[in-house]
């Protein structure tokens, strides 16, 4: 196994285009596990963790988060999304949060990746660059299946971008341990009061992150009635209905971490709670 240490995006892109099967290493918290389990045996590894350009975090109405921003950074700096910060807090342990990155979460593209429901709910754009071109994909186009994305082998994930949606957002995650647990189900809810838009992203409930479109439209109706700009309190019945629609969007399976029935059940609970929580924030 050969390891190249890149310092600039250009070097990374050159490696990706010239060496077939070159594998990128960011924090290594997914890749090293794959190697240890014998599921990956990359011939060439390109370490990108010293590429400063990928660590940028810009906010001015539009947020641009470089691929190398770690979970610890999302907690320490304002990451331009309260839901993303809450998602970062649910990830792993301090050691994992110090090393693990947004780009790595996107690179792995697991339905249990905790930043992914947030990026879906924010309707974020993923910026991909190769030696030849740059592509910008909406999150929904980027993720195509469990651990499958539209990223081509010669592309580097450079950043994710989204409109700053304000404070009315939250992320919740269910796992059978109080920390350091892979999501049995996750939910990100974003209410962009300025743009009059609701985004709901579901994690670990299907082959990809799922947007609960019907639930989003239902909630938009509620906020239109209550006044987008105002804090409000949805009725219990409305919160419950929102939860029901969230759960109905899911395509869960039974696996070793939980049953499909339980996933549907907790999505409904999370949906109702998230709506009430977020509606109160203006």
């Amino acid at each position: 196994m050969s390891v190249q240490v890149a310092r600039h995006v250009g070097e990374v892109l050159d490696n990706l285009s010239s060496v077939t099967g070159a594998t990128l290493l960011a924090g290594g918290t997914d890749l090293l596990v794959e190697i240890n389990f014998g599921r990956a045996r990359p011939a060439t590894v390109v370490a990108i963790d010293r590429v400063a350009e990928l660590k940028n975090l810009e906010r001015n109405g539009r947020v641009r988060m470089g691929a190398l921003v770690t979970y610890t950074r999302m907690l320490d700096d304002d990451p331009g999304s309260p839901a993303l910060r809450e998602a970062a807090r649910t990830v792993g342990s301090p050691q994992i949060r110090n090393a693990g990155t947004l780009g790595g979460n996107l690179g792995t593209c697991s339905p249990a990746g905790d930043t992914l429901p947030v990026l879906a709910a924010l309707d974020a754009t993923i910026v991909l660059r190769s030696a030849k071109t740059e592509r910008r994909l909406r999150f929904g186009e980027f993720m195509t299946g469990p651990k499958k994305s539209a990223r081509r082998p010669d592309e580097l994930i450079v950043a994710a971008e989204w409109d700053d949606a304000g404070p009315a957002q939250t992320f919740m995650k269910v796992g059978t341990r109080n920390a350091m647990v892979i999501a049995v189900a996750g939910l990100a809810l974003v209410v962009d009061r300025a743009r009059k838009r609701v985004g709901a992203g579901l994690g670990s409930c299907g082959p990809t992150i799922i947007r609960a479109a019907e639930a989003e439209r239902f909630a938009e109706g509620l906020f239109a009635d209550a006044g987008w700009e105002r804090a409000s309190r949805p009725s219990d019945a409305a919160a419950k209905e929102f939860g029901r629609l969230v759960a109905a969007a899911a395509k869960p399976i039974d696996d070793v971490r939980g049953t499909a029935a339980y996933r549907r059940h907790v999505l409904a609970v999370m949906g109702a709670r998230a709506l009430a929580r977020v509606a109160a924030i203006a």
């Binding site: 649910t90 995650k173 109080n178």
Partner: peptide
């Protein structure tokens, strides 16, 4: 919420 059931998962602020 970290001291409540669900811990870091941010699931409840006391509900349930």
């Amino acid at each position: 919420p970290i001291a409540l059931p669900g811990g870091a998962g941010n699931l409840t602020h006391g509900e349930g």
